[in-house]
Write a protein that binds this DNA or RNA. Structure first.
Lengths: 132, 132
DNA sequence: TTGACTGTATTATGGGACTAATACACTTTC
DNA sequence: GAAAGTGTATTAGTCCCATAATACAGTCAA
């Protein structure tokens, strides 16, 4: 059963998109695997304190992306393959890195300064248990 | 007069926030300076193909942040100081870098791999005229 | 002074995100 | 078989973003 213990909703981004991203990123990280069961719409919505329809929206989009399989009456399960994960990784990384690059460029930050700032922040916010 | 030639609206983020960020980032980069005139609400909205009220919302928030000065009948002007710019830079950088760091960590990307990916993307998307 | 342009304010409309309350069909488990 | 849990669907309501159409008061330049 996929855990949502580390899921922390932020405001500014629609919740259904945050759920979507949480699962996609978990798949890329390998913490969410093919065949893993997802919590039911009702259980997860209660756990997150949101409406069941919001969870349904996220899960429905995951199904459209062919990343989960749903069947009336049974729990939904992850439907992953190495190929899908590679593509997910490329897509997510591309979006994130394009975003930060454009943002820093607009602020007149140089490449080296950007790398230095990110490296410093990474260390300052690390848990200490990482191998990074 | 502040130019919006390099402003390219993206979907997903409210337009008024994008205008707000465009101006704040320009102030940090130094391309927008204290005393610079802003285009009028009507002119800018026509230029961007959006509603005057959307521009007004962005400008109103800039005024609440004490970054511009408006007076009925006259054009609005930037109201910057070194102190404000330093704070702006810290705030914007903090938000952006926290965001990318969390995102990459959730994908299981290591610090070194993150830096490598960003460095590569930076070069691949550079204009060639940068000193970076 | 006059006309064009400016900032500001108001009301109305539509769409997306989210909530709320149901309802129905199906699977799973005892 | 029955009860509990599941996915799915519908309708209604609120709030924010954005549009649309005005209106009014002040500045600026000819």
């Amino acid at each position: 059963m996929i855990s949502f213990e580390t899921f922390k909703p932020t405001d500014g981004t629609p919740i259904y998109l945050q759920i979507l991203l949480y699962i996609k990123r978990g798949a890329v990280a390998g913490t969410i695997r093919d065949g893993d069961e997802l919590p039911s719409r009702r259980v997860l919505s209660a756990l997150l304190g949101i409406n069941p329809n919001t969870v349904q929206k996220a899960f429905h989009m995951l199904e459209e992306d062919d990343l989960i399989e749903s069947q009336t009456g049974a729990k939904s399960v992850m439907k992953l393959s190495e190929e899908k994960i590679v593509k997910l990784r490329e897509d997510l990384l591309s979006d994130d890195i394009r975003s930060i690059t454009e943002s820093l460029r607009q602020m007149g930050i140089s490449r080296d300064e950007a790398l230095r700032l990110i490296a410093k922040f990474w260390e300052d916010t690390g848990t200490g248990t990482d191998i990074d």
